[in-house]
Lab assay of single mutants.
Amino acid sequence: KRYRAVYDYSAADEDEVSFQDGDTIVNVQQIDDGWMYGTVERTGDTGMLPANYVEAI
């Protein structure tokens, strides 16, 4: 699945990823209600991200 960031996010922990509004997130997997795991296409960084900061595309 592919998602697009709708807000900027700065990683708060080493297992999270930072991204900017408009970034595409690929290979996304749902972890639980609030978190997903995926790769930021622009940077190649992979990690956890907050589900409410992205939307499906």
Rank of each mutant, 00 (worst) to 15 (best):
R2G: 05
D21K: 15
V40N: 09
D21I: 15
M48K: 15
M48I: 10
S10F: 13
Q20C: 14
F19Q: 00
I25R: 00
L49G: 00
T24I: 15
M36L: 14
Q29T: 14
G22A: 04
T43R: 01
Q30M: 13
Y7K: 15
V6M: 14
Q20H: 12
I31W: 10
M36P: 00
T24N: 08
V28D: 01
N52C: 14
E16T: 08
D21P: 11
I57E: 10
G34H: 15
F19L: 06
G44Y: 04
I25G: 01
I31N: 06
Y37N: 06
A11W: 03
V6H: 07
E16P: 00
Y9V: 01
A12M: 14
T43I: 01
D33Y: 09
I25C: 03
D45A: 13
Y53M: 11
A56E: 15
N52K: 13
G34W: 14
V28G: 07
V26W: 07
N27L: 13
N52Q: 13
N27I: 13
Y37E: 06
L49E: 02
D33E: 12
A5P: 04
I25S: 02
G47S: 00
T39R: 06
T46C: 09
V28L: 07
D45S: 10
W35C: 05
T24Q: 08
V40Q: 02
T24M: 13
V6C: 13
R4C: 09
E16G: 10
V54H: 01
Y7A: 15
D13V: 10
G47Y: 00
I31P: 04
A11K: 08
E14W: 11
S10L: 13
Q20G: 06
Y53N: 05
A56H: 10
E14K: 12
T43C: 04
I25K: 01
A12H: 12
G38K: 00
D15G: 15
T39C: 09
Q29A: 10
D45G: 07
G34D: 15
T46G: 04
R42C: 05
I31C: 14
V28K: 03
A56M: 14
G34I: 14
V6K: 13
E16D: 05
E14R: 10
M48D: 02
V17A: 05
A51F: 08
G38E: 03
N52F: 11
R42D: 04
P50I: 04
T46F: 07
D45L: 13
G34Y: 15
G22S: 05
V54T: 05
P50K: 09
R4N: 05
T39P: 02
D32N: 14
D33W: 09
A56F: 12
D8T: 11
G38T: 00
G38R: 00
D21L: 15
L49W: 04
G34R: 14
V54L: 12
Q29M: 13
F19M: 06
N27W: 08
R4G: 04
K1N: 12
E41S: 07
D32K: 14
A5H: 01
M48R: 15
R2D: 08
D23N: 02
Y9R: 06
I31R: 11
A5N: 02
S18K: 02
A12E: 11
R42K: 08
K1G: 11
R4K: 10
G34E: 15
I57Y: 09
I31E: 06
S10R: 10
I31L: 13
E41G: 04
Q29F: 13
S18Q: 03
V26D: 05
K1A: 11
Y37G: 03
Y37L: 12
T24D: 07
G22R: 04
A12C: 14
F19G: 01
E14Y: 10
S18N: 07
K1C: 14
R2V: 12
A12Q: 15
V28R: 02
I57M: 11
F19I: 06
T39L: 05
Q30C: 14
E14N: 11
I31D: 05
Y9K: 03
V40L: 03
Y53E: 03
R2N: 08
A11E: 03
D13H: 15
T24S: 09
R4T: 08
I57S: 07
N27V: 15
Q30S: 11
D21Q: 15
D23T: 01
S10V: 15
Y3F: 10
D23A: 01
R2M: 10
V54A: 05
I31S: 07
P50W: 04
V17L: 07
F19C: 03
Y7S: 14
Y3H: 05
L49I: 14
G38A: 05
V6F: 08
F19K: 02
D8V: 06
Q30T: 11
G44W: 05
D13C: 15
D32G: 13
D15R: 15
V6D: 04
D23Y: 02
S18A: 04
V6Y: 07
D21N: 15
E14D: 13
I31Y: 09
A12I: 12
A5Y: 00
G38F: 00
Y9W: 05
D23L: 02
D21Y: 15
A12S: 11
Q20T: 10
S10E: 14
S18W: 03
D23G: 00
A11H: 03
T39G: 01
G44F: 04
A11I: 03
Y37V: 12
S10T: 15
D15Q: 13
M36E: 02
V28Y: 04
N27R: 09
G47H: 02
S18P: 03
M36F: 14
D13W: 10
A5F: 00
L49M: 10
E14I: 12
G38Q: 02
V6S: 06
Q30L: 13
G44A: 05
G44T: 04
T39K: 08
W35V: 04
A11F: 03
E41D: 07
Y37A: 06
K1W: 07
I57D: 08
A11S: 07
M36T: 03
G38S: 00
Y3V: 08
A11C: 05
Q29L: 13
G44S: 06
D45R: 12
V17N: 00
S18C: 04
T46I: 08
W35H: 05
E14F: 11
N52P: 09
Y3N: 03
T46N: 06
A11G: 08
S10I: 14
